[in-house]
């Protein structure tokens, strides 16, 4: 019914209650999703992590055995280290690339629309297809990347007489390759930064122009500090996401290798342990470690927001 039905003044709380009820109604689908797709699986994971469970027979109580075994598991330690190193290297690079592109492409100019689309496109490619594409790009002998690197060189060497990177067989090159792959999927970060940059007041930049600030001054003294909170949030978000988006590249392109476990990240470890070796309890314990990392990242994010709000007295 409409607002006209409410007797005015009789119950002052009435419109407020209705607004709340509407709010609750609108939140319901999200809450159902949150509970069904996040909370319940998280609790189940917690439950599974203290059991031995192979999906086929009923789980048996294992206490903290799974966690103790994780500590001793060299593969898990490598996977954890790989994931952390990936986040530390790839996340700043991704955010910087997105920032650079956003700053280059936020103005209206000829070709900017095309360039923005190009920057976004890799993110829109289905992950598996994207992985297969890179499998071709990385082909050590016939792939276009190494063909290009060999231009001007002889006997399969680069123009500088060096062997081109062995993307899929050398551990360091493979890790670099996965990072390289991940760089081009920063489209979302790029869009957010593009919007953030375009939301910055134009007159502030005109002010700087009148004061004859150089491009570097403008970037350092204006753009960077104004975008800093967004950048920090994006970086944390990206770090959390990096736990997941390493999965498909490692699964499709490197299969966790080169041997033994150069690109086995936590996500792939969990997948293999659970789905391939049917050790669901153990995989759940590893997932829990991943969730703890996520929680830690979210705490950092929360602190950043708080500090930002205090800083600007918002």
């Amino acid at each position: 019914m409409s607002a006209g039905d409410a007797a005015p003044g009789r119950r002052a709380a009435r419109p407020d209650t209705r607004a709340r009820r509407q709010l609750a109604l609108m939140l319901t689908p999200y809450l159902i999703g949150l509970v069904g797709l996040v909370m319940v699986p998280a609790l189940v994971t917690l439950g599974m992590s203290v059991t031995d469970y192979d999906l086929l027979r009923p789980p048996t109580w294992a206490g903290l055995d799974n966690f103790a075994a994780l500590l001793d598991d060299p593969i898990f330690r490598v996977a954890l280290l790989n994931s952390v190193v990936f986040a530390l290297v790839a996340v700043p690079l991704r955010v910087l690339l997105a920032l650079g592109l956003a700053l280059l492409l936020h103005r209206r100019a000829a070709g900017v629309g095309t360039a923005r689309t190009a920057a976004l496109l890799p993110t829109a490619v289905p992950e598996i297809a994207y992985g297969l594409l890179w499998l071709w790009l990385f082909n050590p002998l016939y792939g276009p990347i190494n063909q290009l690197l060999r231009v001007g060189g002889e006997n399969g060497l680069t123009a500088f007489g060096r062997t081109p990177p062995q993307w899929l067989t050398d551990p360091t090159s493979a890790r670099a390759g996965i990072i390289l792959m991940s760089l081009f999927t920063m489209g979302e970060t790029f869009v957010v930064l593009l919007a953030a940059r375009r939301a910055l007041p134009r007159d502030v930049y005109e002010m700087a122009a009148i004061e004859d600030a150089t491009g570097w001054d403008v970037f350092r003294r204006i753009t960077l500090p104004l975008l800093a909170p967004v950048l920090a949030l994006l970086a944390v978000r990206d770090a959390v996401a990096s736990l997941h988006f390493t999965f498909v590249p490692a699964f499709v392109v490197t299969d966790g290798g080169p041997p033994p476990y150069a690109t086995t990240y936590l996500s792939l470890f969990v997948y293999q342990t659970g789905f391939e070796y049917l050790r669901y309890g153990y995989a759940a314990a590893a997932t829990l470690v991943m969730m703890l990392l996520t929680v830690a990242a979210v705490l950092v994010q929360w602190r950043l927001i708080r500090r930002y709000r205090r800083f600007y007295q918002l």
Partner: peptide, 16 residues
């Protein structure tokens, strides 16, 4: 603009 030696007060003030 930087070489014209003018100052401007914007309607929005354009404070940083």
């Amino acid at each position: 603009p930087g070489r014209r030696n003018v100052s401007m007060v914007f309607q929005s003030y354009a404070l940083f």
